[in-house]
């Protein structure tokens, strides 16, 4: 969980940083999208680096889901009889919503690829410029899509708030002082990431990026 999760978090930050390029200008954003395909050339053929990245990400996601499934099955087996009385959680809310939160994020990622990568569920088609898919996809008239993105990104934030700290713990963080620090860093990173991701769809929906 920790190793595959770390790779995914690193990707999320690179992806979020790239998104912000749209605030520089739509042609710059398209230029950035094209650069992602040029990356690695001429050592690698066109777009190969991108595909290597994509397969790496798929492997990380696969390992992450596999580990989560094993843990869930073990948890179910470890408590065959449920408590009749189970009050609200004692520990962190984020920690207790990791599993369903993860499922929601997977569903969101599928939608997100169909929407902005392939353009299947986007008013602009897959052949259009990347910036057009963003601008038309988050059009004020499609406010419900923006709302869905906001909810999903907040779910990612909750997932990371526990996930980042938990990964640090799994890798052997073991002091009480370090625990407070790691939790604070996880919270800050999650909030920053959510803010970076939300800025683009909200800016488009409110007409700040045209």
């Amino acid at each position: 969980m920790a190793a595959s999760g770390t790779l995914l978090v690193l990707f999320l930050f690179a992806h979020a940083a790239g998104n912000l390029k749209i605030f520089v200008g739509l042609p710059d954003f398209d230029h950035y999208a094209e650069w992602l395909r040029e990356l690695g050339t001429p050592l690698l053929p066109h777009a190969w680096f991108l595909w290597i990245q994509r397969f790496g990400l798929l492997a990380a996601i696969g390992l992450h889901i596999w580990a989560a499934t094993v843990l869930t099955i073990r948890a179910k087996k470890a408590r065959p009889v449920k408590y009749a009385h189970r009050p609200k959680v004692q520990g962190s809310y984020a920690a207790r919503t990791m599993r369903w939160g993860g499922v929601i994020i997977v569903l969101f990622v599928i939608w997100h690829i169909l929407d902005l990568t392939l353009g299947v569920v986007n008013p602009a088609t897959g052949d259009s410029d990347a910036s057009q898919r963003v601008v038309q996809g988050f059009d004020p008239e499609r406010w419900y899509v923006t709302l869905f993105y906001v909810l999903a990104v907040v779910a990612v934030g909750f997932h990371l708030r526990h996930g980042i700290w938990s990964a640090v713990r799994t890798m052997g963080q073991q002091t009480t002082k370090g625990e407070r620090r790691a939790k604070a860093i996880a919270l800050v990173l999650s909030v920053v990431l959510v803010a970076m991701y939300l800025s683009v769809p909200i800016a488009v929906t409110f007409g700040l990026v045209k």
Binding site: L71, A78, A95, G172, Q174
Partner: peptide
């Protein structure tokens, strides 16, 4: 023995009558 796996949820230390800190799990992992 059939115990589940740890996900650092932190519920254990909240109910521990001796207040065993969660940080010891990091020590075990290390």
């Amino acid at each position: 023995a059939g115990f589940g796996g740890c996900t650092n949820a932190g519920e254990c230390t909240m109910v521990c009558p001796k207040g065993i800190p969660l940080s010891l799990i990091g020590r075990l992992n290390s």
